[in-house]
């Protein structure tokens, strides 16, 4: 069934119990990613982007845990899986790419060792075949002279090349879903574009679903098909990339766009969103963004706050920007 999304997150809630009460770094988040599609996830630091990604692959650090909602991988619930069952899915069905290629690779194992171990773990192939596949995986991510470099240690590669190796590792057991958590943040600007292009190519060629977490609006504009904007653990806006970038409906998205330089926006002066994202233990009533929002009205300060479902399905805002911006929705 090609209609079933590869990843379907439904009303996901992640909670962290602390001495001062329970924090919700991920609060009622829902989204789908289809095969061959890239979902960009943006938001300020601490918005819960990484938490969401970690929850999907079952790598939440204690004491954070999923308390409600569902995660479906090709229609199968995986949020209930534990230990061994979950481990078998990781790498094989879903892969993850982290921010820093310098620290993502084990310094004492050769690149080939790390690749073949992963391949042998998930695909029933011989040692010989695993090695061939490892070489092929390196070639696919654009490592020159892959066959002669396979026995090199990570430190013998440059930063950009290392991130290619990381991508090869994440993809070598042919997963359907890749969660890339800021894969370009730690790289030189000149290398960033190459890595993004590589991710995009692999996604298209292999039909992998990609969740691309980033701070970089340029990366989103370049690679993503759809964008999810997160604010204080909640989805602020979710929609096709062109629409969200050119006509943001949530004031936060619009502020975020105005504060990032985009080639397409020309030479307008950059604006800053006033104030800072509230801390998780200290969220305001109603819409979490209202203290910083220039359009905030009484309703925005009252519970329950807006969600995608209770609004227009695109922006979690009672008074979305756009064509008829004076029109209140969901009322």
């Amino acid at each position: 069934m090609t209609d079933t999304p590869v990843l379907s997150v439904r009303n996901l809630v992640v909670e962290i119990p602390t001495r001062h009460g329970v924090l919700r770094p991920v609060d009622n988040v829902s989204y789908d990613i289809r095969a061959g599609e890239i979902l960009g996830v943006v938001g300020e630091s601490g918005a819960g982007k990484s938490m969401t990604g970690n929850a999907v692959v079952g790598l939440l650090d204690r004491p954070a845990r999923i308390t409600s909602g569902e995660i479906l991988l090709s229609g199968q619930p995986i949020h209930t899986l534990k230990g061994e069952a979950l481990r078998r899915l990781r790498g094989k069905k879903m892969g993850m790419i982290f921010q820093d290629p310098l620290t993502s690779l084990n310094p004492l194992l050769t690149v080939g060792d790390q690749l073949t171990e992963t391949i042998l773990e998930h695909l029933g192939v011989s040692q010989q075949q695993a090695r061939e596949r490892a070489v092929a995986a390196l070639e696919e991510v654009g490592i020159p002279a892959a066959r002669s470099r396979i026995d090199s240690y990570p430190h013998e590669f440059s930063g950009g090349m290392r991130q290619r190796v990381v991508i090869a590792l994440a993809l070598c057991a042919e997963p359907d879903l890749i969660i890339a958590d800021e894969p370009t943040t730690a790289l030189d600007v000149s290398v960033q574009a190459q890595i993004v292009a590589l991710l995009k190519r692999l996604c298209r060629e292999r039909g992998v679903a990609v969740m691309l977490v980033t701070h970089d609006m340029g990366v989103i504009a370049e690679a993503a098909d759809r964008v999810a904007v997160m604010y204080a653990g909640r989805l602020a806006e979710l929609g096709p990339v062109r629409e969200v970038l050119t006509e943001a409906r949530h004031p936060y998205t619009s502020g975020l766009m105005a504060s990032t330089p985009l080639a397409s926006q020309g030479h307008e002066r950059l604006r800053q969103i006033p104030g800072a994202m509230p801390r998780l233990g200290n969220l305001p009533d109603g819409c979490a963004f209202h203290p910083r929002c220039e359009f905030a009205q009484d309703r925005c300060r009252q519970n329950p706050g807006p969600t995608l479902d209770t609004c227009d399905g695109r922006a979690a805002c009672w008074f979305p920007l756009g064509a008829d911006r004076k029109q209140e929705v969901g009322a």
Partner: peptide, 13 residues
């Protein structure tokens, strides 16, 4: 370390 996390994310035993 990150590389342990990454190894876990690849389903290494």
């Amino acid at each position: 370390m990150d590389y342990i996390r990454f190894a876990r994310a690849r389903g290494i035993r």
